[in-house]
């Protein structure tokens, strides 16, 4: 029968999200997650000094990392959706702008973009560090997410748009009611990966002296010279966070698949 094959973007590059039914990956996830958790709990007992102090010092940083990550991903999703729609727009000028944005941003390292927005642009408008950090992350990830949305929209079979138009829907109605709901299911795994990548990349904002997890760790370590201990805890906390979110994404994915087959 025609068209039973469902489109799907395969993203194996750097994918932390465990595939359903992949027993080995699942076990690896468990070992990593619970191993890291166990270390975080045990270390303060085994060696209270300096681990208790370190763990008391970091929560502010975790909050800042969260703030940067969540705000950036929310704005980036919004920007990415607009960019994705722009990339498939039949209006030439919109299409061109979206394409140039994607090409330019993807061609510049995130670290350079952070410097650029805070220091270079700072010559013109001085914005708070946190705002600069979130702006840079949003602009950068908006471009990547834009490409994911574009691919996701294009992965919906052409017949869907045709059927919707043939029923008298406008292009926008068809996009909103027919194409995008299907796109969400297709893009969820790669968007989840971007979210996790963004969480990790958020450590770059410490370079602007935003007091995120890494920055707090650095402050503590340079004060006390407990470099090994501090960065071990910092790394473990990042690991627990990313593994937690990767699990969350894979659960969401499963639920979406179950609800609307």
């Amino acid at each position: 029968m025609a068209e039973v094959k469902k489109p799907r973007i395969e993203v194996s590059d750097g994918a932390l999200i465990p595939e359903k039914g992949e027993k080995a990956t699942f076990t690896a996830w468990r070992i990593s997650f619970f191993g890291a958790m166990a270390l975080l709990v045990l270390l303060p007992f085994v060696s209270p000094h300096p681990y208790r102090q370190i763990i008391a010092f970091l929560p502010d940083g975790i909050l800042a990392t969260f703030e940067v990550t969540v705000l950036s991903i929310v704005f980036a999703l919004f920007l990415g959706l607009i960019t994705g729609l722009g990339r498939i727009s039949r209006v030439k000028i919109i299409n061109r702008i979206a394409t140039i944005y994607v090409e330019v941003i993807r061609g510049i390292p995130l670290l350079v973009q952070l410097f650029y927005i805070y220091y270079a642009m700072g010559k013109i408008v001085q914005v708070p560090r946190l705002v600069a950090a979130i702006t840079a992350m949003t602009v950068c990830y908006g471009a990547y997410l834009g490409e994911i949305f574009r691919a996701g929209i294009q992965a919906v079979p052409k017949g869907q748009m045709e059927a919707a138009l043939a029923l008298g829907m406008s292009r926008w109605q068809a996009m909103r009611r027919i194409i995008l709901p299907q796109t969400i299911k297709i893009v969820l795994p790669p968007v989840g990966n971007e979210f996790i990548a963004l969480l990790k990349d958020s450590s770059l904002v410490s370079i602007l002296a935003v007091a995120d997890l890494l920055r707090r760790g650095r402050e503590y370590a340079s004060k006390t010279f407990y470099y090994f201990e501090t960065y071990t805890v910092v790394a473990l906390v990042y690991l627990v966070l990313t593994l937690f979110f990767s699990k969350l994404v894979s659960l969401m994915e499963e639920r979406l698949n179950r609800r609307a087959p």
């Binding site: 068209e3 017949g159 045709e162 059927a163 043939a166 027919i178 299907q182 299911k185």
Partner: peptide, 18 residues
């Protein structure tokens, strides 16, 4: 308006899977 008045059935059905 034209499309509202003209129904179409496709070879590949094109039902909305969601």
């Amino acid at each position: 308006h034209i499309r509202e008045e003209v129904g179409m059935v496709f070879q590949s059905f094109n039902l909305f899977p969601h």
